[in-house]
Computed example of a mutant assay.
Amino acid sequence: MTVVRKAILTAFLIPLLSLANPASAQQKANAMFGTAKTASPHKPHSIGSYAKGCAAGMVQLPETGPTWQAMRLSRNRNWGHPEAIEFIERLSAQAAKQPGWKGLYIGDISQPRGGPMLSGHQSHQIGLDIDIWMLPAKSLKLSRNQREKISSISVRTKDQRRVNGNYTPQHAAILEAAARDPAVDRIFVTPPVKIQLCKASSRSDKKWLQKIRPYWGHDFHFHVRLKCPKGSKGCVTQKPSVKDLSKGGSGCDDTLNWWVTEALAPTKKPDSKPAKPAPKKKNVRDFTLADLPKQCRWILAAN
């Protein structure tokens, strides 16, 4: 073995062996992934599930493109699987055709090597989740400082039951374009947006609407989740599928109204003493390296 080859092997094995010892395996995963500054030198690969995994060979979304700007650059979360970057390029180009939109403002994607984050998201761990602001991108010349201070807009009323005046047909067109993209698995939106999309869609083809999933907290942005890329062995597809959730339809049925009726009703106090609570589920912020797929240790160790 040459001196050069030995030096290279040593440089790789030392950090890997340090991550393999029991003490390192119990370190908080978000502290380790949250401080990684660059992607791993591997072929692109998403590993594990959206909320428990990591990613190899990630690509950084350019801060500014022809039809997008990445926001909150200080977070260093504008990294994704190449298919996520390509999706942003496609969708932002379509958004730029909408009146009043020059493209899209892109929020968090993932960290350079994926994994749990120090703050914020439970998911966004394998480079396939993308937050897209509801704020129309009227300028693509925002400075780094402006992108730290500017805020998105909510498209939902304060009572959480309806869309407000910020919601436009352009939002609907962009969401439909995203849902029709074959790379997309599902899109999370605030429930009133899903209801409004169902009301406004008069076409016979409503199947794309099954990808639009109502969920809390998505009134300032919509969250696109891509399918596991072909060949990404070890990437875990989310279950149930949108087809199962929508029972093969569009999801525009009576159950949709639950989100703006019963779900918002005040919680009644139980008449009797509650049963022993179930064991608390481990929070993503408490994950250790041992909780993640073993390949994530190699990704952290690689230089």
Rank of each mutant, 00 (worst) to 15 (best):
A137L: 12
L19I: 01
D159W: 06
K294F: 07
S154I: 05
S92A: 13
Q160P: 00
G65A: 10
W298N: 03
P44R: 13
R77L: 11
R186D: 05
S49F: 05
M1E: 08
V242K: 04
D131C: 09
V193D: 01
M71G: 01
P99K: 15
G65K: 04
T157K: 12
R213A: 09
L91G: 01
I195D: 04
S110C: 12
F188G: 01
R180Q: 14
Y167P: 10
I14V: 14
F287G: 02
G127M: 08
N30C: 11
T10E: 11
K52T: 07
G231Y: 14
W298F: 05
R186Y: 11
V260F: 11
K280M: 09
K28F: 09
S110E: 01
E86R: 14
K149T: 07
R144W: 02
R5A: 15
V163M: 07
K97D: 01
P240A: 11
R5D: 10
S152C: 06
Q27F: 06
H121A: 14
A36V: 08
K276A: 10
R161K: 15
L104Y: 02
P169M: 14
G251M: 13
K158F: 03
S119Q: 08
Y167G: 06
A183H: 07
P214G: 14
N164W: 05
G48I: 04
P191K: 08
H221D: 05
D129R: 04
A179W: 03
C235Y: 06
G114K: 03
S18D: 07
M117C: 04
V59C: 08
R113K: 15
E148I: 05
P41L: 15
L289S: 04
A302S: 12
G127T: 06
A51G: 06
G120H: 03
I153L: 12
D271V: 01
V3K: 15
I132A: 12
Q27D: 05
Q26N: 13
K268E: 15
D219S: 14
I212G: 06
D291H: 10
L256G: 13
K294D: 11
I187Y: 02
P240L: 15
D205Q: 11
F220T: 11
T10I: 05
L140C: 09
K273W: 10
A25P: 00
N30V: 03
Q125G: 08
V184K: 09
K282F: 03
K280V: 12
Q26G: 03
I153R: 05
S74E: 01
I150V: 13
N21V: 04
M134C: 10
A84P: 00
L16M: 11
K158N: 10
P116N: 06
S143V: 08
R72V: 03
Q146T: 01
F287Q: 05
S204Y: 03
K199A: 09
N166W: 04
K227E: 02
A265E: 13
I150H: 03
A137V: 02
K158D: 08
S232I: 02
V224Q: 06
C252V: 10
E148Q: 09
P15L: 09
S246C: 15
P44D: 06
A183V: 10
D253Y: 07
L209A: 11
